[in-house]
Every structure is written in structure tokens, then in C-alpha cells.
């Protein structure tokens, strides 16, 4: 009998074991939903799949009677725009400040403690401040995402820059590189894949801040819709929306991973054929 740490599933086995928890969760839901509906046909807590499909058709493929919009797509567009702007600004800030703090001793002396303290401020606690300062419109939601994830990205990137082998920076100098050339040709190319990884990790928090901001003050958006229909206990809308958000997050994560892999082939060099 081989040790359990040495026993691996084959290709088919891997797929089976991956699919298993999803299948169990789906079956569990179907059974629980059927049981509740058998007892009370008007149950709203665990709607059947058919009800959710109806809700998807209603939200996504029928124009809203009041505005004429297709609500699901309008919500998605609004949310993705906020998320994209927030992530974009936070990433740009991280690139600028992270590299500067990690590489330039004077900037590190000036900013690293400040950023460390900033990153400890709970972003949700300053949300009212953001609403007061930036108004209830788009800006405050984007700023919340930036405030929420930029400090993490900055600190992560500056630590990665500091971790770079001293030998590389010295070598670049002996080849005649200026500080700027070192940033451009030595530090940035090696840090971009790290930055993409950090952005992938902060996708979860970014969605959290987005939905929180939308729940409190918005007129459209995925988070806004979920909190709106909660008043009618419309689980048939909430559950597909949650599934949709999950899918969007998963897709953006996958997209970033593939992007990093194709843009930076050297990362996988020498790591075997797989």
C-alpha cells in the first residue's frame, strides 16, 4: 500500500474528483428545493431551477417595462465599468508607487511607513467620507475600490521589488544602465507578472467593495439589484445574479492568468514541458 501522498488520480479521475463537489452541491440544492416546494408550493427561499430560468429570461432578455433597458446587461455594464476603472487606477498607482518604494531608498524612507498605515484603514469605514467628498455618483464607488485594494497592491509590489537579487541591480549598473533604464528594462519586465498575480488575488476584495458601495447608493449595478430585490425575497433573481458575478470573477481571473502566461513566456522557461 503506497502512502496517500504518493497516490495521484489520472486525467479522468482528476476531472471526476473536480466535478464531484459541484455535483453534490447542485444535487443537495435540488433535493432541498423539492422538499420545501412539496410542503409549500409558494416557497420563495429555495426556488426551483425553472423559476430561476424564468427570472433570467425576465431580467436579461425582456426590456424593463419602466426604462426599456435589459436590466441584467445594464447592471453588468455599470458594475464592470466601475470595477474596471477601480482596478485600472489601483494597478497604475501600484506600478508607480510600488516600484518607486521598492527601488529608490529615499522614496522608501518617505512613503513606506505612510502606505503601511494607510493600508490598515478599513476601507468601509471611510465609505461615508467618500460619499461626502465625491458625491453619490460613480466616482465614490471607483474611489472605494481604489482605496480598498491599492495599498495591498503597492505593498506587495514594493516587497517584490525589494526581494529582487541585489546581484541583478549591480550587474545592470556595471553594464552602464541608469536608474531609469534599470526600471524600464530590469525591474518592470520582471514585476509585471507579479503585479498581474497580485491583481488576481485582489479581484475578490474588489468585487466586495464594489457590491458594498452599490448596495448603499446606486441606481443600477449587480450589487444594487441584489439588494433591491432582497426586499421582495426574490431568491429566483438573487441566486442567478450571484452565479453570474461568480462567473465574471472567475473569467477575469482566468483571463489574467492566460494573459500573464502568453505575455511573459520566460516565467515558465526551464520548468519542464508541462
Amino acid at each position: 500500500m503506497r502512502r496517500v501522498i504518493n497516490r495521484r488520480p489520472g486525467r479522468g479521475g482528476f476531472l471526476f474528483w473536480s466535478a464531484l463537489p459541484f455535483a453534490i452541491a447542485a444535487a443537495g440544492y435540488a433535493v432541498a428545493s423539492a422538499l420545501r416546494l412539496a410542503e409549500n408550493p409558494g416557497d420563495r427561499l429555495l426556488p426551483p431551477l425553472s423559476a430561476m430560468a424564468d427570472a433570467v429570461v425576465r431580467m436579461g432578455f425582456t426590456p424593463d417595462t419602466r426604462t426599456g433597458d435589459y436590466l441584467l446587461w445594464a447592471d453588468t455594464a455599470a458594475s464592470l465599468q466601475r470595477l474596471g476603472l477601480g482596478l485600472g487606477v489601483a494597478t497604475a498607482l501600484a506600478l508607480l508607487l510600488g516600484v518607486a518604494i521598492g527601488l529608490i531608498p529615499y522614496v522608501r524612507a518617505g512613503l513606506s511607513a505612510f502606505v503601511a498605515v494607510l493600508s490598515m484603514i478599513p476601507p468601509m469605514a471611510v465609505l461615508p467620507v467618500l460619499f461626502i467628498v465625491f458625491g453619490l455618483d460613480e466616482l465614490s464607488k471607483v474611489v472605494l475600490i481604489v482605496v480598498g485594494i491599492a495599498p495591498f497592491l503597492i505593498r506587495d509590489l514594493s516587497l517584490r521589488v525589494e526581494e529582487m537579487p541585489r546581484e541583478q541591480l549591480i550587474k545592470a549598473q556595471t553594464l552602464g544602465a541608469s536608474s531609469w533604464q534599470i526600471v524600464l528594462q530590469v525591474v518592470l519586465p520582471q514585476m509585471l507578472p507579479r503585479l498581474i498575480d497580485a491583481v488576481r488575488l485582489s479581484l475578490g476584495p474588489a468585487w466586495l467593495f464594489l457590491i458594498s458601495a452599490e448596495a448603499i447608493a446606486a441606481t443600477e449595478g449587480l450589487g444594487y439589484r441584489i439588494f433591491l430585490v432582497r426586499r421582495y425575497m426574490a431568491m429566483d433573481v438573487i441566486l442567478p445574479y450571484v452565479a453570474w458575478i461568480t462567473l465574471l470573477a472567475f473569467l477575469s481571473d482566468t483571463l489574467l492568468r492566460l494573459l500573464s502566461r502568453s505575455l511573459f513566456p520566460w516565467q515558465r522557461a526551464g520548468k519542464g514541458a508541462s
Partner: peptide
Amino acid sequence: PGPGRGVVFQRYSVFPHRTVLENVIM
């Protein structure tokens, strides 16, 4: 450090994100 004095360390002397040729033309 400057171009008058070249250096080779035991490790980390080349840049992992550049090919052999790209390393030399730096």
C-alpha cells in the same frame, strides 16, 4: 558600480526575462 568594472557573481548574474542574445546586447 559602472561600466568600467564588469562583474560576474556566483548566481543571479543574468536576467531571467531575456533570452541569451537579449542578455548579451544589454
